[in-house]
């Protein structure tokens, strides 16, 4: 399925299906230490991919490049057909509307209720009010929180808060969902629930899903494509792969 330039299993594929392309991407911060060093990989539409690696391996930099929070110092990052280095500041909001993002710390607006948090993403893209009500109800139903739309986020468990974040990420129907350590703050049961939910979204809606994680059990159990990074380079890219130990 997916193909990286450094991977072990290479298959024939069509470039037109790639929604994420990294071509010899490097990123060096002002300290001079390269966070990414000539990383090349391609992710196809509808894929479910894990990105694993230790702290400092370049995973977070990769996500920031995909979000266009950073621009590469070398190479090319193409997301949904847009070269992120060429995007002007005013074009970034529209570009990001095609990306759903979920963080480890949920990043919810704690002074608003569940409904408002999800509706917030729709308001940002100027969706008409009637449509917001319909879309938010559907997104909350999808993550199993239809009955809690009035609850304040602080009253929810960690797993539920992550579901709200997921509903917010999905309500605009993005073709790509980026999840940065989505289970990092959750217990094993909730972690599994979130992963199953992501898998369901991937299967049912065809959303391309990229999950950055440290969760060995989940990665090994789910048998998805696994890209392993170490010190800013891709050291492994396997279909139905597993978590590679450092040793």
């Amino acid at each position: 399925m997916g193909l990286a330039f450094n991977n072990k299993k290479k298959k024939k594929r069509r470039d037109g299906d790639d929604v994420i392309i990294l071509d010899k991407v490097s990123k060096t911060y002002t300290t001079g230490v390269p966070a990414l060093n000539e990383v090349s990989l391609k992710i196809r539409k509808g894929e479910f991919v894990f990105i694993v690696g230790d702290s400092g391996s370049g995973k977070s930099t990769l996500i920031k490049l995909l979000l266009r929070e950073l621009t590469p110092t070398g190479g090319r990052v193409v997301v949904n057909g847009s070269d992120v280095s060429r995007l002007k500041h005013r074009q970034v909001p529209k570009f990001r509307r095609n990306l759903g993002i979920v963080f480890q710390d949920f990043r919810l607006l704690n002074d608003r209720n569940v409904y408002e948090n999800v509706a917030f993403a729709q308001r940002v893209v100027l969706t008409p009010s009637k449509q917001i009500r319909r879309n938010v109800s559907r997104a909350l139903a999808m993550v199993g929180l239809a009955g809690k739309y009035k609850a304040k986020t602080k009253q929810l468990s960690g797993g539920e808060q992550q579901r709200v974040a997921l509903a917010r990420a999905l309500v605009n129907d993005p073709p790509i969902l980026l999840a940065d350590e989505p289970t990092g703050n959750l217990d094993p049961k909730n972690s599994w629930d979130i992963m199953k939910l992501l898998e369901k979204i991937n299967t049912d809606k065809g959303t391309t899903i990229l999950v950055v994680t440290h969760n060995r059990e989940i990665v090994n159990a789910m048998q998805k494509r696994v890209i392993t990074m170490k010190k800013g380079v891709v050291v492994s890219d396997e279909e139905k792969g597993g978590y590679i130990d450092e040793d």
Partner: peptide
Amino acid sequence: KEEIAIMKYIGATDFF
């Protein structure tokens, strides 16, 4: 600051 960052990640324009 956090709220502003969330808005920007979701795709809010500077004006919004």
